[in-house]
């Protein structure tokens, strides 16, 4: 139990996917203008991360490692994620139109999101067990959501501020992201501290 909590909190706070691992920067910068869109996108990311970890872990352990095919990992993982996202989209569209309308539109965007492939590769790299992988994916997704939602709030405030001409637009957004990342630096060591 303690181990799961450590993995979860590490993934959310100290090793935040966006702000300290630099994964999923494109949606972080591109989709964080509106709080609502940011939350919707993050929910879809959490869902896809959990699902792809749950599917790729058994494939890797029982198919690739058993047959000495580890060098196919990259290809297999990206294909599985792409196929899975497509499948989920079709199922949601057919059977749960309400959910599809709120989450479904973000799904194609997620296929090429490096955060999803990143979490899957990390799970294997850190040789997590199945349940640890799921917890790590959940933490990574929640961390993504936390960063997105926080940053959407910061950006809404920034709209009204007077920014030097050359910095307007993307540069000031990156500087703001830098400041948000500073706040996450404060979590360094916190998780180890709690369970020490």
């Amino acid at each position: 139990m303690k181990m799961f909590l450590t993995i979860l909190l590490t993934a959310i706070l100290t090793d935040n996917f966006v702000l300290s691992k630099f994964l999923g920067i494109c949606p972080f910068l591109g989709v964080s203008k509106k709080l609502e869109t940011a939350a919707g996108m993050s929910a879809a990311v959490i869902f896809v991360m959990l699902l792809s970890s749950a599917v790729t872990w058994p494939i890797n352990t029982y198919l690739l490692v058993k047959n000495d095919l580890e060098y196919l990992q990259t290809i297999v993982f990206i294909l599985v994620i792409a196929a899975l996202v497509q499948l989920v989209e079709i199922i949601l569209k057919k059977y749960m139109p309400a959910l599809y309308n709120s989450l479904g539109i973000y799904l194609p965007l997620i296929t090429t999101n490096c955060a999803v492939l990143g979490v899957v590769v990390l799970n294997i790299d850190k040789s997590f067990t199945f349940s640890q992988s799921l917890v790590n994916s959940l933490g990574a997704g929640l961390g993504f959501m936390l960063a997105m939602v926080m940053f959407a709030g910061v950006r809404e405030r920034m709209e009204t501020s007077d920014v030097p001409k050359s910095l307007r637009g993307l540069p000031i957004t990156l500087v703001a992201a830098s400041l948000v990342a500073v706040s996450f630096l404060g979590f360094t060591g916190v998780v180890d501290g709690i369970f020490a």
Partner: peptide, 19 residues
């Protein structure tokens, strides 16, 4: 070298490229 520095330097370089 840490994460915030990355965002900051990138922002400044884009500002320069924009200029």
């Amino acid at each position: 070298i840490l994460a915030p520095g990355g965002f900051f330097v990138f922002g400044m370089l884009i500002a320069l490229a924009n200029k």
